[in-house]
């Protein structure tokens, strides 16, 4: 897709002035615009993807208000809040990395990407810790694992909808976590390289585009959590069940 290898070597200054772009494009700007628009269009599909399960959740929340409120209180709000903080901070470091990519500071990009990935991995670690807690408390409604609703819920006859809430909790945060893992995979391409091979001509400019596109994705995944956190943890929260 890139310029054929047989092309005559360009003078050094041209290589800097004319970064690589794929054959179907007329110039680098067209490629840049197309790739960024492509990512935005993809994010629209992601909005619709998450939108479907959010809608289902909202409908059930109305249908089974009391059970969902009780189940919501079972979630660990402290860990949820810490995770929100961790994820928002990773968005900050990502935004700084995009900026560093645009000004061509590749060393800075490497540092910030490492930081972003550590924060992302921390989020996932805390999330799996939360999952494990739910498993220990017999509140993971999957794979036929033992499931017991608390006594108060059982007494109120709300065990079914209570389990529905936890199904949504695992489904929604699970799909979100999957997106986080994919995001970490995408970010890993910007990890600082130990090799001292000089970058290919135009590579720095191209990576500014790549990092912009991956940055959009990362911010979107964070944004999904900004909706998940209040919907799952915060609404109808009270100390008394």
């Amino acid at each position: 897709m890139s310029t054929p290898a047989a092309a005559p070597p360009l003078p050094i200054h041209t290589a800097i002035d004319r970064p690589h772009f794929a054959l179907q494009f007329d110039d680098y700007h067209q490629q840049y615009d197309a790739c960024v628009l492509g990512m935005w269009v993809f994010l629209v599909t992601e909005v619709m993807f998450f939108g479907a399960i959010f809608t289902g959740y909202a409908v059930y929340r109305m249908l089974h208000h009391d059970a969902f409120a009780m189940a919501s209180n079972e979630l660990d709000i402290t860990l949820g809040t810490i995770n929100t903080f961790v994820l928002l901070t990773s968005s900050l470091t990502m935004a700084l990395a995009v900026r560093a990519g645009h000004v061509g500071n590749s060393k800075r990009v490497g540092q910030l990407i490492v930081l972003t990935m550590i924060l992302g991995a921390t989020f996932l670690g805390i999330k799996f810790f939360e999952y494990y807690h739910k498993y220990e408390d017999h509140m993971a409604p999957a794979f036929g694992l033992p499931f017991e609703a608390p006594k108060a819920v059982n007494d109120a006859g709300l065990a079914g909808p209570f389990q529905l809430f936890l199904s949504f909790y695992f489904g929604m945060t699970g799909v979100h976590a999957l997106h986080m893992i994919i995001g970490l995979g995408l970010l890993s391409q910007f990890l600082p390289r130990s090799s001292r091979i000089a970058p290919a001509p135009g590579a720095a400019v191209l990576s500014a585009l790549n990092i912009e596109v991956v940055g959009l994705y990362w911010h979107f995944v964070d944004l999904v959590w900004i909706f998940l956190f209040p919907m799952l943890y915060l609404i109808d929260r009270s100390d008394t069940i």
Partner: peptide
């Protein structure tokens, strides 16, 4: 791009229900 992700989620939920035992559409749970 607007419609297909929604059916993807609907299918995913059916798959979760069958494969993982998570009951989203199961009337027994409400």
């Amino acid at each position: 791009i607007l419609g297909t992700p929604v059916v993807a989620m609907a299918i995913l939920l059916v798959a979760l229900e069958r494969g993982f035992g998570i009951g989203i559409f199961d009337p027994k749970l409400g």
